[in-house]
Write a protein that binds this DNA or RNA. Sequence first.
DNA 1: CTTAGGG
DNA 2: CCCTAAG
Length: 620
Amino acid sequence: MEMDDSHGTMVNKSEENDFEKKGTSDPVVYQLVRVEGDGTLVPATEDDVLQFEHFLHNEKVDLPPIEDADHVEEFFNNDCMLLKKPDLEDGSSKLETVEAHTQKLGANLEENILQSLDDSLSPPSDFRIHSQHSDKLLTEQGANVTRQDNASTETTKSTVLNDSCCAEKYKADACSRSVCDTSTDPSVSGVNSSMPDFSILRGEVCLDDLTIRELQEAFRATFGRQTNVKDKIWLKRRITMGLTNSYDVPSSGCVVKDYKIVGKDAKNDMSDMDERAKTGLRATSVVIYPGNEGDSPSSSYYQSEDQEDSSKRVPIHNDEPQGNLLGEQCTDKRTRKPTKRYIEELSDIETHDSTVKNSSPAKRPAHDELLMNPRVAPFNETGSLGTIYPTRKDTFGGFSVHVPYVSRMRRGRPRKDFISFADKGPSVEPKGIQPSVEMILVKDGDKGNHLRKVPEVPLKVSSENEHAEAVDSKGVRNLQAKVCSAVSKPKIKHGLTRKHHRAWTLSEVVKLVDGVARYGAGKWSEIRKLSFASYSYRTSVDLKDKWRNLIRATQTQLPAQKDGACPRKTNPSIIPIPPSILLRVKELHELQSQGGGFTAPVKFSGQDGKVLQGKGSGFL
DNA sequence: CTTAGGG
DNA sequence: CCCTAAG
């Protein structure tokens, strides 16, 4: 049962998203990703892989001690989440995703994959990672711990939504456990009455004053079923939750306060809730649209939750602040659905996205699919760690819920991104949703994908909002360009962040030169497609720029070297471009420029051969 | 979208 | 690298 229960599909590989199918065995697929400072997840690029590889190979990887999932998360959030793996041949290969089945708690990370992390993770972590296909070696694996909630780990699959609410449970459980080892009790699972009776709670009863018995009563009243739990705190929380979630929260006075009392954790939760409330983003995963008080929906909801609770009750030790992430989610449970506005905007974004995507069908396979659709409610969890949780609305047992949304891929070039809407305009967005929309796109290997997110983009929606879209077709690119590496604060910078700088490697330069030799300078897109297939992050513009730089280098560096001793101390860190290459660049340049822009593909594109046919050969 | 160029 | 203007 545990086993069955524990799956959470995090990231899916090539196939259709498993999310849709709640198969009992949805594998969790992890992928190598990079976590930007703002929590954005960016699929690792070949470079990342390489980098990391080096990192691992060359140095001692100072992995912070990781004691539990939370820590893992923390750790991962700090940087790239790359898992070491034995041999990387060439960074060019696709990042393989790792399928991870979350198993019972306590399961250790398996395979050598997480070797490096292993030591620290072993105990409590509940990850289990398997290479997606056993035959598929663990070449480059990464775990995209997109946030393996304890929740999802622990619970799971069955009801992704439950997870969120479970967070609460965890805490509660933890509490109860610590307080009085009373188990929440299996008997609770029984689905009894469907009509909770709130009468008891109607009054201004303060949970604090109630005895356990009374609390149990209240619980029963709230959830319509009995409980044997004797943990007061747990009960209170439960009840509070129930009340809070019951549509009439506001009127039930005792709840909130009591809730807070639970601990500062709770407080944090609350504040977080507030935050979210402000932004309009809901961390909640369960959204119930109440009809009547004590509606069956809600009751059933709780039931299921509890069932899980009782049946599962996995030992999760996290009373730490981090645990709050989870807790928060559940705390916030009954959130109101996104505002219309929000939805609209989302769809807008989506529209853009699709638009963009469609424009370049040939380029990428067709994985793209919908990344975002109105139903996808980016759920921004910017906890201390800045983790982000995308969620997607789904229907579960009749009501809509938000489940962690995990990707559907998108094209490789980061370019297309969306954004949030920010405050630029005078009144564009009510409260300026700061880092509002976030997306997490994780893609499968293929050509490393890059996704980026733009924290906020100032849509210049001065007056013609309507045209915004049109404008965007153009603007999108620019906006995207402002991608953020987020290493810095996704602050006020209008989401203007630079693309992660990637130093050109010698091999890249060689390829570039070669490409130019072959296709001619100016055929950047060609070169990119043919010679840089494996370097997805180099755009034609990049190539062009690089070439330009090479030319410059040619004109300065080269002569300098010849003429005299190197004027400057050659900075060892800066890979000097071998004169030979420079020379070649120069020749090509001269040749092509003189040749009057003729771009005769060179027949002999000898690797090293200086394919020089007389200058200006050709016309004229 | 692709190029060229300026920044 | 980014941004824009042009095809």
